[in-house]
Design a binder for these strands. Sequence first.
DNA 1: GTCTATAAGCGGATAGAC
DNA 2: GTCTATCCGCTTATAGAC
Lengths: 235, 235
Amino acid sequence: MRAVKKSSANRSTVSNRGSRPPTKTALPDRARTRAPRASRLEKEALIVAEAEQQFARFGFEGVSLDTIAAELGMSRQNILYYYSSKEELYTAVLDSVLANWLGNMDTLARENDPRTAIEKYVHAKLRFSQERPSGSAVFTREIMAGAPRYGEQLAQNVVPMLRADVRTFERWARMGLIARVDFTHLMFVIWSSTQAYADLGTQFAMYLDKRALSDADFEAARALLTELVWTSLRK
Amino acid sequence: MRAVKKSSANRSTVSNRGSRPPTKTALPDRARTRAPRASRLEKEALIVAEAEQQFARFGFEGVSLDTIAAELGMSRQNILYYYSSKEELYTAVLDSVLANWLGNMDTLARENDPRTAIEKYVHAKLRFSQERPSGSAVFTREIMAGAPRYGEQLAQNVVPMLRADVRTFERWARMGLIARVDFTHLMFVIWSSTQAYADLGTQFAMYLDKRALSDADFEAARALLTELVWTSLRK
DNA sequence: GTCTATAAGCGGATAGAC
DNA sequence: GTCTATCCGCTTATAGAC
């Protein structure tokens, strides 16, 4: 197999700042009551947020510390003061997304009623896609690349969740609450389609002749997907 | 917005039908009089095939001409002899995938019976994901990046196909052949989930504790997705 | 904490020999 | 067609001044 090459790419192609996030507002009055510790965390959060946006669109190799720094009005050396390497910043982004994710995504087993469980699950997953599309996209890119930098964490955190959800479906089927279909592939469909509303959101919007997906679009997606899944499971 | 460079459509690498490198046709009696033209096309096909693999995993910026050349046992300068820039090679890859795609994907309207149409459509889309996963992934990455280099072609070739399919659904609904749901989002679900079996195939396989998805896995996906869609449309 | 300077290497692309 | 040589910009990262 080929070795994963080192990162270093000509950035001339990434000059497009078309749909960039709104220019980050500089730190609001950093007047005198500046707790040193809070300040650091605050700045790290800004860096991670900007890095998330860029990694989402261009992937690890497609982003340079310079472009991240430029967008934040700081120097690349300054970023390296907070994160000692590009890869460390990258994993910090993924850590941040994963934490937010695990904190907000309940498993199916939280609910006893299958219908309610599915409704809530699809809703939560789509909400994540809507509220943090970049976070979703960074994960998708990492997975598409073969998870070279975050495979361990994925295997330990995400896969077990999926397995638990499949087991929950199977339990419900044994209890006669739902019809028996291939629950693993059902999860694949639910995951990939909800994820797509984050990763391919701009493309979906373009198809719909709008600049970005609206609440109504996400509501339509939620309604349809819930309907699709539940109709096939209803006994 | 970024200017989309012209793609070298004249340099058609479309002849590479299958997923992998070209089969040498070599008519025995013609062995002496080697046509230089065929030789060139053959080599271009090899380059495009390797580039497709790498762009699929690492994206445009994540790949260097050096790594592509190394895998083929040639020099990066030699690649530049066939494709005068990295971007030209990249668009040649997308041209090749798109041609293969348009040639094999029928629209829904090809069939008169909705059920049959959906079955064939899902089947064809999944088959493409199975047979040319890298091609799918290159497109997904391009779209996730905001289609900076192939947006024009996407808008002209893919979007119209999707719109036509949605109109077909609507016609069937007016004819009373299927129930009325949100057909646009239905297409989003069909596209994203079938696409995922290419883009996230290795991850799905990992979840299933195997090295790669098998025919049986694709068959299970086909059966489930067809069932999901059709059940929700059956009147 | 933030800066300047610099190391050390990879990137795409061109020119020209053979 | 393929190679060597070369240009030059960009990249990550370190060292050290302030």
